[in-house]
Simulated assay, not measured.
Amino acid sequence: MHPMLQRLDDLAAHLATRDDTIAVLGLGSAGAQRGRLDDHSDLDFFVVVEEGAVSRYTTRTDWLTVPCPVVWSFAHERHGRKALYADGVFVEYAVFTVPELRRVPFRGARVVWRRADAPPGLTESDAPVPRPPFDTVEFHLNEALANLYVGLHRELRGEHLSAARFIQGHAVDRVVALLRLGEGEPPYRDVFDASRRVERTYSPRVLPLERMVPGYRGNAAAARVVLDWLSARYPIPAPIGAAIEDLLSS
């Protein structure tokens, strides 16, 4: 067994001895898609507890240290913590009651352990996954063009960081979405983060990320690459295309 999964099993075995725990769910590469797991994975999981027990597991880490000492941890949100074990295993976990769990958007969970009287359906969320307003070629193309336009104005104003987020971040996300629509769902797609595993899915010839994401001072060059990529595949509306070209020549 991979050490990451063994760590989760060890935690679950300990939590199973406590009266206020209901279940442990593995997520991400420790969830239903364990084929994603490798030596660079972190360990994501949920702990499902009785009413009134959430704060015990989010503010205290005595239970977390049972398999191995924890050398660093912090609360990253109200329901969870991130932590680093002495042996290098990095974990991110959240703690919910059953009603709270129903309201959390997640996918691909796996039951590591559940109490005999735990309710069914713990691996399924009733909450929708956040999505863009439209998942169409028209939307992603025009949103990418809008990102380029706004980003280039930020660049010309001297706001290089903001420009990078629009051009090398948001616009490239739309490029990835267009590839997904054109070439089909990639394997192990992360519905919460489109950037995950794109390098394994698309070759540099199809998705030239090195030129689309060159860095802080490369915003104009990145915008040119993204615009050319879009122009080679889709008809660019003339007004916005001309406006972006004007900004690139400024």
Rank of each mutant, 00 (worst) to 15 (best):
residue 1 M to S: 14
residue 3 P to T: 12
residue 6 Q to M: 13
residue 7 R to T: 10
residue 7 R to A: 08
residue 8 L to E: 06
residue 10 D to H: 13
residue 11 L to N: 00
residue 12 A to H: 00
residue 17 T to A: 09
residue 17 T to P: 00
residue 18 R to H: 09
residue 21 T to E: 02
residue 22 I to G: 02
residue 30 A to P: 01
residue 33 Q to S: 14
residue 35 G to K: 06
residue 35 G to W: 13
residue 37 L to E: 07
residue 39 D to A: 14
residue 39 D to G: 11
residue 39 D to L: 12
residue 41 S to E: 05
residue 43 L to Y: 05
residue 44 D to M: 06
residue 48 V to K: 01
residue 49 V to E: 00
residue 51 E to D: 15
residue 53 A to M: 06
residue 55 S to E: 15
residue 56 R to Q: 15
residue 57 Y to E: 06
residue 58 T to C: 11
residue 60 R to V: 14
residue 62 D to M: 08
residue 63 W to V: 00
residue 67 P to C: 10
residue 67 P to N: 09
residue 68 C to N: 11
residue 68 C to F: 08
residue 75 A to H: 11
residue 76 H to K: 10
residue 76 H to G: 10
residue 79 H to N: 14
residue 79 H to T: 11
residue 79 H to P: 01
residue 81 R to A: 06
residue 86 A to H: 11
residue 86 A to L: 13
residue 87 D to P: 09
residue 88 G to M: 13
residue 91 V to G: 03
residue 93 Y to W: 09
residue 94 A to W: 12
residue 96 F to R: 00
residue 100 E to Y: 11
residue 100 E to A: 15
residue 102 R to D: 14
residue 102 R to E: 13
residue 103 R to W: 11
residue 104 V to S: 01
residue 104 V to D: 07
residue 108 G to Q: 06
residue 109 A to H: 01
residue 110 R to Q: 11
residue 115 R to V: 07
residue 115 R to E: 07
residue 117 D to H: 13
residue 118 A to R: 02
residue 124 E to V: 14
residue 126 D to A: 15
residue 126 D to S: 13
residue 129 V to I: 15
residue 129 V to K: 07
residue 129 V to E: 09
residue 131 R to G: 09
residue 132 P to H: 02
residue 133 P to D: 08
residue 134 F to Q: 13
residue 135 D to A: 14
residue 142 N to E: 13
residue 143 E to A: 13
residue 145 L to T: 03
residue 145 L to I: 05
residue 151 G to R: 01
residue 152 L to A: 05
residue 152 L to T: 02
residue 156 L to A: 15
residue 160 H to L: 15
residue 161 L to H: 15
residue 163 A to K: 04
residue 163 A to G: 10
residue 167 I to W: 00
residue 174 R to A: 05
residue 181 L to F: 03
residue 183 E to P: 01
residue 184 G to H: 03
residue 185 E to W: 06
residue 186 P to T: 03
residue 192 F to N: 05
residue 194 A to Y: 01
residue 195 S to H: 14
residue 198 V to G: 00
residue 200 R to Q: 15
residue 200 R to F: 15
residue 203 S to L: 08
residue 205 R to Y: 07
residue 206 V to F: 07
residue 208 P to S: 12
residue 210 E to C: 12
residue 211 R to I: 08
residue 211 R to G: 07
residue 212 M to W: 02
residue 214 P to N: 09
residue 216 Y to A: 09
residue 217 R to D: 13
residue 220 A to C: 08
residue 222 A to M: 03
residue 222 A to Y: 02
residue 223 A to F: 00
residue 223 A to M: 04
residue 224 R to H: 12
residue 225 V to S: 03
residue 225 V to F: 03
residue 225 V to L: 05
residue 229 W to P: 01
residue 230 L to S: 02
residue 231 S to R: 09
residue 231 S to A: 14
residue 231 S to Y: 02
residue 232 A to K: 08
residue 234 Y to V: 00
residue 236 I to G: 02
residue 237 P to Q: 05
residue 237 P to Y: 01
residue 238 A to C: 12
residue 239 P to M: 03
residue 241 G to K: 04
residue 244 I to S: 01
residue 246 D to K: 13
residue 247 L to F: 08
residue 247 L to G: 11
